[in-house]
């Protein structure tokens, strides 16, 4: 189970998260939605210690990760993988080396075994033919596939997907949706998905939480999200430029 308890975070004068509390039961999929700059990515990065909260607590099962040292976070990061918004493959490494890195560092495998495992993982996302190429040699969509392979290579119990379908063609996006669903259904993986993709939300999510002005505006099943009468949520679902929604200021402005 993942639990955020009264988490607040401020950057300069901008209050990004204001007393946010959310719970994701084991094996379930929570979609976090909201306008750009609403603090969705900031919230999920707290879970793996990439950002520390100003106040509040974060739990992974019964383990409080809020103030763990960088070293104490290593086992947490082994259990909880993250697929970043920009793929974040390392330019100086081949695709196979990128996927093998967590195996080398977390599991201390020897390079040959890690490479063989990386090739197997790449084959699962149909990228084995490009294993010896560099990230700069392939397109955004393919990079995202490799990033997903790298995140799943340690068989994590928890996965954070930060806008996993952005930049993907519809078929590739549907594959990612299917993968997220299958991780939950077949392997009991708990997932948090940051997304704007309403099609994915209604197809994959067990719960949906909407962040607005640093707070949780809505937290419930997709059906509640679909039938809500809240004018801000309705404006978001319907994608209307006019409405009550106020957009966040750029950071530092």
């Amino acid at each position: 189970m993942i639990r955020f308890e009264n988490v607040s975070k401020r950057f300069g004068t901008h209050q990004v998260l204001d007393d946010v509390s959310l719970t994701v039961p084991k094996g379930r999929i929570l979609f976090i939605i909201g306008t750009s700059g609403a603090g969705k990515s900031v919230l999920v990065k707290h879970l793996v210690g990439l950002i520390r909260p100003d106040s509040g607590r974060i739990f992974l099962d019964d383990l409080e990760v809020t103030q763990l040292s960088e070293k104490a976070l290593y086992p947490v990061r082994k259990r909880c993988a993250m697929v970043f918004q920009h793929s974040t493959l390392f330019d100086s490494m081949t695709l196979a080396e990128n996927v093998a890195l967590p195996l080398l560092k977390h599991r201390k495998l020897d390079p040959e075994t890690a490479d063989a495992e990386a090739l197997r993982r790449l084959a699962q996302v149909h990228m084995e033919a490009s294993a010896r190429r560099y990230p700069a040699d392939i397109g955004d969509g393919l990079r995202k596939r490799v990033a997903i392979a790298r995140a799943l290579t340690l068989e994590p119990e928890y996965v954070i997907f930060d806008e996993p379908t952005t930049g993907l063609d519809p078929v590739a996006a549907a594959n990612v949706d299917q993968l997220i669903r299958s991780l939950s259904a077949d392997f009991g993986v708990t997932s948090i998905v940051v997304s704007h993709d309403l099609r994915s939300i209604f197809k994959v999510a067990d719960r949906v939480a909407m962040l607005y002005q640093g707070k949780v505006l809505l937290d419930g099943p997709p059906s509640a999200f679909r039938s809500t009468t809240d004018p801000v949520v309705r404006q978001f679902i319907e994608g209307r430029p006019e409405g009550p929604m106020r957009f966040p200021r750029a950071r530092g402005s």
């Binding site: 990439l50 082994k78 993250m82 970043f84 974040t88 977390h106 790298r150």
Partner: peptide, 8 residues
């Protein structure tokens, strides 16, 4: 950030 998550 991705490096740190890989324990690197």
């Amino acid at each position: 950030d991705a490096l740190r998550l890989c324990n690197a």
